[in-house]
Structures are given as C-alpha cells and as structure tokens.
Design a protein around this nucleic acid. Structure first.
Length: 222
DNA sequence: AGCCAGGGTCTAA
DNA sequence: TTAGACCATGGC
C-alpha cells in the first residue's frame, strides 16, 4: 500500500506551483464560502465583478439583497450571503487583524469557525490553512475520491487526515501544498485515473475490476 | 438534455 | 449517529 509520503513526493514532483490561494486574507475567506459545491471559474467571475468591494468593512455594510444577487451564480445565494455576514462578524471580533487571529491556537479557531452558521469542516480548514496559515489538513471530495481509487478505505475524514499527515511535520505551507496537488491531480486526471499515462500514481492503482467496484461503492454512498 | 460542481444544515429514525 | 432531503445556478 502506498504511503502518504510517497503520494506527496510523486505528485509534488509533477506539480511545482500548487498550494497557493491568491488574494487578500479576507478575499480568501469569502472565496472559501462561495466555492462550496461550485466551480472556481464561477467564483472568480463573481468576485471579479465586485473586486474593489471585497473588504470586511464594506461587506458588513453592503445591502443584503445586493449581495445575494451578486453571488447568485455561485448557488445557494441566501445561505452563502448569511455565511459571509457571519464570518465577517467573527473577523470583526478580531478587529479584522490577521495577526490577532494568528495568535490564537488552531483548535480554538477551528471551534469558533465551525460554530458559525454555513461554515463546516472543509470551509473552516480552507480558511485556517490558506487565510491564517494554521496547519489544519483539508479533506474534501477529491481527497476522498483519490484515496478510494488507490484502494484505501477509511471510516471517516479523521482517519483520512491521520493517514495523510503521517510522516509530516505540522506545517500550514506543506498542508496547503499537499491539498493543492491532490486537487490538481484530481481535476486533471481523476475521471480517467487508472488509465492515465502520465499519472505518477498509476502503478499504485488497483486493477480495473477493483476500481470499478470501488467507484460504484463510492457513488452509492456519495 | 441532463449531469454535476472542492458543502452544509436539518430532520427522521 | 447517520442517511437523505434540501438548498438553488450555470457551464458543458
């Protein structure tokens, strides 16, 4: 069975420039909400249309229905607008100061973020890692799918996190990069994964029959 | 045309 | 505690 180290090394060699999330701290926070179950191109287009208004000061005073209409293409506009307001209020309790947030420990921050309505585990971890450089490993649908395709089975995301972080030091930049290359690999190759010629993980994939069985297993339980 | 995006919340059992 | 409905849009 391939180890996490091997996965990282093989993919890291292929993708040099993954693991960064451009934009201001606050823009990253807002994007993390907007991208829920949505494509990145849509999020980018929407944010670009209100580029100069993406500051916590402006968003907290912006008209709610205007915000909803603006982010409508990102789906779930009412929910996401509410989540953005909540997150902005939370940030206000730190005076919109990145350093004040970063002074706090990871577990405390994660609990605070999860307590906000509309922010779940993945969004919280996105924000922790990419906005505040806290080492909280992100597990998303792509991560689960990739491991599934490699023939690994886990009961829950905590187990996945344990497996992937084994052998790594707790480092936000490494976690960000690891998540970035997994994402990239999945977007580029996931659909044709076992057959893909230039996939570095190709030799670790289970046989075609086994793959199809697991693919069905995965789709039935989402 | 129909499928599906980097989720999260709420409810029923 | 968990499965499943629901939210709710546009690109391909």
């Amino acid at each position: 069975m391939i180890t996490s180290r091997e996965i990282y090394t093989l993919l890291s060699h292929k993708y040099e420039d993954c693991g960064s999330w451009p934009g201001s701290t606050y823009r990253i926070m807002v994007s993390a909400i907007l991208v829920q179950n949505t494509t990145w191109t849509t999020v980018d287009r929407v944010l670009h249309s209100i580029e100069d208004q993406i500051t916590p000061e402006q968003i907290s005073h912006i008209d709610r229905s205007f915000l909803e209409e603006t982010i409508r293409p990102c789906r779930y506009c009412r929910r996401k607008a509410e989540a953005i307001y909540q997150l902005t209020q939370w940030y206000a309790s730190y005076k919109y100061d990145v350093n004040l947030v970063m002074e706090k420990d990871l577990e405390t921050l994660r609990k605070e973020l999860l307590a906000l309505w509309g922010i779940g585990p993945e969004t919280a971890d996105d924000i922790l890692v990419y906005a505040f450089h806290k080492p909280s490993f992100i597990v998303d649908a792509y991560t689960r799918r990739l491991l599934q395709r490699l023939g690994h089975h886990f009961a829950n995301d905590t187990s996945i996190r344990r497996f992937l972080t084994r052998g790594f030091t707790e480092d936000a930049d490494i976690y960000a990069r690891y998540h970035g290359i997994l994402l990239r690999e999945c977007i580029d190759h996931c659909r044709a994964f076992p057959q893909c010629r230039d996939c570095p993980l190709r030799s670790y994939c289970p046989s075609a029959e086994r793959f199809e069985r697991e693919e069905q297993l995965f789709s039935t339980k989402n």
